[in-house]
Write a protein that binds this DNA or RNA. Structure first.
Lengths: 238, 238
DNA sequence: GTCTATACCCAGATAGAC
DNA sequence: GTCTATCTGGGTATAGAC
């Protein structure tokens, strides 16, 4: 009952003809055919990755079938397996992209190594922007981590942990220089993640609490005000 | 590759004979047979629910098979379907139990309606205890919420939301009475959940950050100190 | 009440026609 | 590069023996 599983009688096959291929795009270049093909391939690949991300975010790795993803982009699962050698490989590709986005929102501290207040303000604002603009990325990542990162622990250890440790080092240096109170930077980082990503990962429950169908910009603004207030009160010197 | 999936050659079938049935327990009572049977049934049911909780926590609804659960308790999946009419019904039962536990750790605010500081201290301590003592419950709940609560939204709306709203009302009353600063209680509740449950749901990543194989009591103590400090600084009057 | 056998379907993946 | 057909295994669920 969880999977609505299409009736399998009528097939809404050609419903979504996906992005119209740039067939008559250019016929004057040196290698027009190869270029066109490779462009089309990249378009479909991107479509597949986007659909897969959305579905993995919602149901996790085990809850999604290749057929499900394929139908979303108007292709067959066999076609999908032509572009990606296996389901797990597709999942890895999705996760890799998610991590790229995730990390790109996490560099605020290192950007302002001499201004704790501004750095923390921007870090929190950035992470909340990530939750608002890329909720599916956040959820894919959350799903993987809650499961104990069975597939991606190596890449997390290689890419995320160093980034976090760099941020922790910055916090510790601030404390040493007297720019902020001494505190355990590792737990502060955990708190920053948790309090910002929850607005993506738990959006369904937060909207229930707020009594509205979906989170709005004002809700993110209120969250930002509260989190910034708390963190600055705690981190900065009196 | 995600599911280690047993070799399916050798069958470790009778490996776990599960809890020894109290067969020679008592033969003098009025209805000894019925009592024995019903006890055995409850034991196995509890075993199944416990194993299901552990696996659902790790892999989500779609990532677990009945066979997987059955093998964990040394039974056949057919036998399992004798106790529970379907996989979804089993999942519902697990979620129902999880919610019981979850809510039982959330009543600190209403217990001390006149003492914000102590109430918040106990609320945070209680939620962190929940994360430490029942990480699988927390993860099952997290999995369901991240997925948008496709199966359990009704029960969440009926049981969780009222509890949260009661807590928000308490916060608002404190503000009205001048016992604490005025702030948006709904976002404060979100922050309290997020910052405490992350120590269960994201345990795998936090241990990587802390550089140890698993979280220890001292880590929870450090988290509690930080969260309490932040919340009290923000909520209480100067 | 529990196990064996099995129905039935859908999963991921491959082969080969076009 | 996409399609049809198909393989194999595992999934949930049921029927019937014991």
């Amino acid at each position: 009952m969880k999977n609505p599983a299409p009736p399998s009688s009528v097939k809404p096959k050609a419903a979504k003809p996906r992005a119209a291929k740039p067939q008559a795009a250019e016929t004057t270049g040196a290698k027009p055919k190869a270029v066109k093909v490779s462009q089309a391939r990249k378009l479909l690949e991107a479509d597949i990755l986007a659909a897969a991300k959305r579905l993995f975010a919602q149901r996790g790795f085990g809850g999604v079938s290749l057929d499900h993803i394929a139908r979303e982009v108007g292709a067959s699962k066999q076609n999908l397996l032509y572009y990606f050698p296996s389901k797990e490989e597709l999942y890895r590709r999705v996760l890799h992209g998610v991590l790229d986005v995730w990390l790109s929102y996490m560099d605020a501290l290192s950007q302002r190594p001499d201004d704790p207040e501004q750095a923390l303000r921007e870090y929190i604002a950035g992470k909340l922007r990530f939750s608002r603009e890329h909720p599916d990325d956040s959820r894919v990542y959350a799903n993987e981590v809650v499961s104990g990162a069975p597939i991606f622990s190596a890449e997390i250890a290689a890419r995320v942990i160093p980034a976090v440790q760099a941020d922790v080092a910055i916090l510790n240096r601030w404390a040493e220089r007297g720019l902020c109170r001494p505190l355990d930077g590792r737990h502060l980082m955990v708190l920053l993640w948790a309090s910002t990503q929850v607005y993506a990962d738990w959006a369904s429950q937060i909207s229930l609490v707020l009594g509205k169908p979906a989170l709005e910009e004002a809700d993110f603004a209120a969250a930002e005000a509260l989190i910034v207030d708390m963190v600055l009160r705690t981190v900065l010197n009196d």
